[in-house]
Design a binder for these strands. Structure first.
Lengths: 136, 136
DNA sequence: TTAAAACCTACTGAATTGGTTGGTTATATG
DNA sequence: CATATAACCAACCAATTCAGTAGGTTTTAA
């Protein structure tokens, strides 16, 4: 499993926010109910998105979250890398991984590199706007 | 992380066996030493490969493992699906997963399907023979 | 008979996953 | 000003997976 619930839920929340973009701040309570996800769990996932300027949250009554750009400006890959930490297909290619001993002679290394490249390339080719067209 | 040590090690063992194909049965003790992998851990990973006819093990002194076909006849994807159980990018697409409630309305479902399709397609396009050319 | 190999079963420590509990702080509204 | 509602924050937790270990049994060549 490459993408856990963190990334999957984050993506669904972003699509939900995109779909209700015109209605001002959207409280997470509503999104949680619509998406059938625990509100408390969502509250743990969202901070990384607001800290990086992907969404903005307004406190208090009438508050909620809003996108900061148009849906076409969000790449799925960016959202997933932020919430998942990494999209590397194997541990030895992850950001904080200890440099592999057999790096120079490993016959499978370029396989994993190319796989990772293709995964990121595909996820970067899809935007939130593309996903909005999916729901019916 | 899509592929754990199980799949990664299995692949390296298969490449090692391919490279020593002409030398008759290769004991896992030798492979473990060459690949710097725990012999006991390898012994836990290999049974699924021999049970499915990918390799054949001969007992006793002078025994070991051997490939059952030419390296070009092994697709990397097959080896990984066997040792990892699944190459689904998300839990809701895994073989034994409970059918998702929002399956029909989920705006991200086709994204995951297409991602999984691309991952499998790439890994099925590479063979053991391709990986043999990598090591130097 | 013995050494060496595959093969089998049970256990284990550490990390990750997928949350829950229980708050604090900020703000719009009556 | 009180209150309801929202984001935000920190600690904890059960279950599962990961990456092995430990300790065998069975099979076979020499």
């Amino acid at each position: 499993m490459l993408v856990s619930t963190r990334g999957r839920y984050a993506l669904r929340v972003m699509v939900d926010l995109a779909q209700h973009q015109s209605q001002g701040p959207i409280p997470m309570k509503d999104v949680a109910q619509r998406q059938q996800i625990s509100l408390k769990y969502l509250e743990k996932i969202l901070p990384v998105l607001s800290k990086n300027g992907y969404i903005v949250g307004t406190h208090g009554k009438g508050g909620g979250y809003q996108l900061t750009r148009a849906p076409e400006k969000y790449r799925v890959g960016d959202i997933l890398r932020l919430t998942e930490g990494d999209l590397a297909p194997v541990a030895c290619l992850e950001a904080g991984a200890a440099p592999c001993q057999q790096r120079d002679t490993c016959p499978t290394r370029s396989l994993w590199c190319e796989l990772g490249r293709r995964v990121n390339e595909y996820l970067d080719s899809v935007t939130l706007a593309d996903l909005m067209k999916e729901s019916h």
